[in-house]
Design a protein around this nucleic acid. Structure first.
Lengths: 150, 150
DNA sequence: TATTGTTATACTCTATAACTATA
DNA sequence: TATAGTTATAGAGTATAACAATA
């Protein structure tokens, strides 16, 4: 199979596949840009904001965080160092594994996570608000089917 | 208006809005992760790959690149420095403005851009391929309406 | 005066490699 | 031996500020 030529015999199928991919990539860049902007407004990187979002409803080990974010554990150490220095998170020994270190939000971190979540929803609403209720539901369903089916 | 409370009186509308935002954010992170992985496989950052994609069908000024990517012009200087050192792009004086600098792909850069585009489509297909033809078309339409309507 | 681009600087993000401590 | 985490190191990405050249 070649990467530089069509994988199907039907040019119309290819055309629709390309259109979906373009829309998906555009959506991702626009959404990411909006979220990054909000993070920057609060002196956070996109990654730091994601850490807050992950920790908003759970206490996890450093390794779990690395898995969630797809980053190396050494990267997580630095990330958490900086967040901790800012008073957003705390470390504590994991009670079940003497090697493990748990991370969780401070009150300040939890507040910031909540603000972030609400502001993101608000910042995305000019985009999501374009759709009517039924369209919004259809879009949600399609995206969830695509994400969960892969 | 408060940011920490619902902006509507109808809790069902809020619930659907939240579901759409969650799906949108999840889609964006998954898509971005897939593209970043492909970039890394070719020793490129996500930003470098985006530069190649932008330049694939146009020659632009440094400032245009900054606008497209939403980055500072000084960031672009560094980005293009590194891409140029790798033989992916070239600089040339802009013929219409003595201050301007044009950027464009070399043959190597154009080849890499094309490979990137095809590999991305292939890497996203396990996700996009979950949907049937009609669903795929509906999703594309909804995303385009949302992006262009904002 | 305003715009275009570069450079110097500083900080964050990221991975690799080497290390310690625990399992 | 394998896993969890940290540290040192190096390079990329990013913005701010100061600058030179051109408009």
């Amino acid at each position: 199979m070649s990467f530089t030529h069509s994988v199907t015999a039907d040019p119309e199928v290819d055309q629709e596949a390309t259109a979906l991919i373009d829309a998906l990539v555009r959506t991702s860049f626009v959404t990411t840009a909006i979220i990054s902007k909000i993070a920057a407004d609060h002196d956070l990187s996109l990654t730091q904001l994601r850490v807050l979002a992950i920790l908003e409803d759970r206490r996890v080990k450093m390794t779990d965080l690395a898995d969630y974010l797809g980053l190396d554990k050494s990267t997580i150490s630095g990330l958490i160092d900086r967040a901790q220095k800012r008073g957003l998170v705390e470390r504590a020994p994991n009670p079940l594994d003497g090697r493990g270190v748990d991370v969780f939000l401070t009150k300040t971190g939890a507040d910031l996570a909540q603000v972030g979540r609400v502001v993101i929803a608000s910042a995305l609403s000019p985009m999501t608000g374009v759709l009517h209720r039924a369209e919004s539901e259809r879009l949600t369903t399609l995206l969830e089917r695509m994400l969960d089916g892969r």
